[in-house]
């Protein structure tokens, strides 16, 4: 949150003078920002905050979504069920593995490509534009592409793995738990890494060139340059991206849902998938809201980290 613009705080001479001269109704002036923000706050309250409050309230009840019977108050029953449900802990573990792997792969590849594309070569603008393509693609067609590429019958990826000695048949890519998780991670990372790459590239380009020159004169080798100059100067950016990546991959629904639906046998069922399946496949509305509250707590924690990093960064910039 930069505080670049201080109009109409009255700090600039011209502004305050003119305000005195014209004597605008001060109450109206002070009300204007609130009047402009109000529609947005009301909008988000109605469509985001109120449903969440409803969800929290609903998690203490037993509600039948299909039937029109009135909800009954059950207290902590849904939560007791959740914490004693071994599946819940398995889902949390899967969420952690998926989120963690996407963070590592997407930011790792993002960093590597940013370092690579920061060096001058011919056709660089073209190569950079091509690199952004996966990010610009909508999720549904991305899934369509990969379902086709991974088809055990005709999938083009089989050309590649058949080179590996010992592989004589096309694998059932999405039927084997480890492979399914691997592919979901890869696809989510493929879609996300260009964004991280571009942000890291922007950070790399803001590192003053003179520091590198000076270090080279002092006899630093390339590894030292990387660890002593590059890494420290993009550290805040990387931290910010790790938090952003955890938010984005924690939220991930469409790719997992359309690739595996959480399967095979729950291998790719993250908490978001679990909430969806509980509510819309098993119609267990009450339990789904309790799971939703658990998901809400996790995303609030991540959001909290983001805000801390964000404000620290804003302070550094100013």
């Amino acid at each position: 949150m930069t505080t670049k613009n201080n109009y109409p705080s009255g700090t600039s001479g011209a502004t305050s003078r003119i305000h005195q001269a014209q004597k605008p109704p001060r109450a109206r002036l002070r009300l204007l920002p609130y009047a402009l923000a109000l529609p947005i706050i009301l909008y988000e309250l109605a469509l985001v905050v109120y449903p969440i409050a409803q969800g929290i309230y609903g998690s203490f009840q037993q509600i039948e979504l299909a039937a029109n019977s009135p909800p009954t108050w059950v207290g902590l029953k849904n939560y007791q069920r959740m914490f004693s449900d071994p599946d819940f802990w398995k889902v949390m573990q899967t969420t952690l593995i998926f989120t963690g792997l996407v963070i590592i792969v997407a930011i790792g590849v993002g960093l590597a490509t940013a370092l690579l594309f920061n060096r001058p070569f011919r056709f660089r603008p073209l190569a950079r534009a091509m690199l952004m393509l996966p990010w610009a693609f909508p999720e549904v067609p991305v899934v369509m592409i990969f379902v086709w590429i991974l088809s055990p019958q005709f999938g083009v990826v089989n050309l590649l793995v058949r080179w590996i000695p010992g592989v004589t048949t096309n694998p059932q890519w999405l039927q084997v738990p480890v492979l399914a998780m691997g592919w979901v991670v890869l696809i989510a990372s493929w879609k996300a890494f260009p964004f991280y790459s571009l942000v890291i590239l922007a950070a790399l380009q803001s590192v003053p060139q003179e520091i590198y020159e000076a270090a080279k004169v002092d006899g630093a080798n390339s590894l030292q340059l990387f660890w002593r100059i590059t890494v420290p100067s993009i550290r805040t950016t990387l931290e910010l991206l790790v938090v952003l990546a955890s938010i984005f991959s924690f939220k991930q629904f469409t790719i997992i849902y359309l690739m595996t639906g959480g399967g095979p046998s729950g291998a790719t069922e993250t908490i978001v998938m679990r909430i969806f399946n509980t509510a819309f496949r098993f119609y267990d509305y009450s339990y789904a809201t309790a799971l939703g509250v658990a998901g809400f707590v996790v995303s609030l924690v991540i959001a909290f980290f983001f805000i801390i990093l964000q404000s620290r960064r804003a302070q550094e910039n100013s």
Partner: peptide, 21 residues
């Protein structure tokens, strides 16, 4: 900050109660 947090919430958390509403 309010806007930031709103942006970060998974859609699924809103979907179930909102469906009911």
């Amino acid at each position: 900050l309010f806007l930031l947090v709103t942006q970060m919430l998974p859609e699924i958390l809103i979907l179930i109660p909102l469906y009911k509403i």
